[in-house]
Deep mutational scan, measured.
Amino acid sequence: PTIVLKVSPEELKALEKAGVEIEKIEKNEDGELYITLTPEALKKAGFE
């Protein structure tokens, strides 16, 4: 199962800087950012 999270541009930068593997980055028509994370990326980021 993949996880989709709504993030701010600042959060996205912080995640990328931390080396979190982001599978997909999407922006909706309201300009909101959503990222898709794999279970492996979540484990690496410390989420179980």
Rank of each mutant, 00 (worst) to 15 (best):
I22W: 08
V4I: 12
E48F: 04
E23N: 09
G19K: 06
E40Q: 03
L15P: 00
E26C: 15
G31W: 03
K43V: 08
E48A: 11
E11S: 08
E10R: 08
P9L: 10
I35D: 00
E11T: 15
A45Q: 03
E48H: 09
E26N: 08
K13F: 13
F47E: 05
I35W: 00
K6Y: 07
E16G: 06
I22G: 01
A41L: 02
V7Q: 01
P9S: 11
K43H: 13
N28S: 13
E21Q: 09
G31A: 03
A18C: 07
T2V: 09
P39L: 15
K6T: 05
I25A: 05
G46Y: 05
L15N: 00
G46K: 04
P9Y: 13
E40I: 02
A14Y: 12
L5E: 01
V7F: 02
L33R: 02
P1V: 14
L33C: 06
L5I: 14
N28T: 13
L15K: 00
V4K: 13
E21F: 06
G19H: 07
A41Q: 10
E21A: 07
A45V: 09
K44D: 15
P9I: 13
N28V: 07
G46L: 08
A18S: 07
K43R: 08
A18W: 10
V4R: 14
Y34W: 14
E32Q: 13
P9W: 13
F47Q: 05
V7G: 01
I3T: 12
V4H: 08
K43D: 15
I3S: 04
L33H: 04
F47I: 11
K13L: 13
V4Y: 06
E16F: 13
I22T: 02
S8Q: 05
V4F: 08
E32M: 12
E21N: 04
P1C: 15
G19E: 10
F47P: 01
L42G: 02
K24H: 09
K27T: 14
A14G: 06
V20K: 00
L33W: 11
F47K: 04
L42S: 04
K24P: 01
A18E: 07
T2K: 10
K27E: 12
E23I: 13
E32N: 10
G19N: 07
E40T: 03
P1T: 14
V20M: 03
E10Q: 11
E10P: 05
D30Q: 14
Y34T: 09
E10Y: 08
E48R: 01
A18N: 09
G31Q: 04
T38M: 06
K24I: 07
L5T: 03
A14N: 09
E48Q: 07
N28I: 07
L33N: 02
I3M: 09
L5R: 07
G19P: 01
I22M: 08
L33T: 09
L33S: 04
E21C: 02
E16N: 11
E23C: 04
E48C: 09
L12H: 03
L37V: 15
E48P: 11
L42M: 09
A45N: 03
T2G: 08
K27V: 12
L37N: 00
N28K: 12
P9R: 12
I25Y: 05
T36F: 10
I25H: 03
E29F: 11
F47T: 04
I25T: 06
E11I: 15
K13E: 11
A45E: 04
L33E: 01
D30W: 15
G46W: 07
K44Q: 15
L33Y: 12
T38A: 04
L5Y: 07
P39N: 08
L42H: 05
V20C: 04
L12P: 00
T36A: 03
L5H: 04
V4A: 05
I35C: 02
N28E: 05
L5V: 12
T36L: 05
T36K: 06
I3L: 06
Y34N: 05
I35S: 00
K44G: 15
E10H: 10
V7H: 00
G31V: 01
F47Y: 12
K24D: 04
E26I: 09
E40M: 03
E40R: 01
P39W: 14
K24Q: 08
E23A: 09
E48T: 11
E11L: 15
V7W: 01
T2Y: 14
E21V: 06
L33Q: 03
D30C: 15
E26V: 11
G31L: 03
E26A: 08
G46R: 02
K6A: 06
G31N: 08
K17C: 06
E40F: 02
E23R: 06
S8F: 05
K17S: 13
F47N: 03
K17G: 09
E10V: 09
P1Y: 13
T36G: 02
T38F: 06
K13R: 12
D30N: 14
E40Y: 02
A14K: 15
L15M: 10
I3N: 03
L5K: 06
Y34Q: 07
K44L: 15
P9M: 10
E11M: 15
I35Q: 00
T38R: 05
A41S: 07
T38N: 08
L12G: 01
P9K: 14
T38W: 03
E29R: 11
K17P: 00
S8M: 04
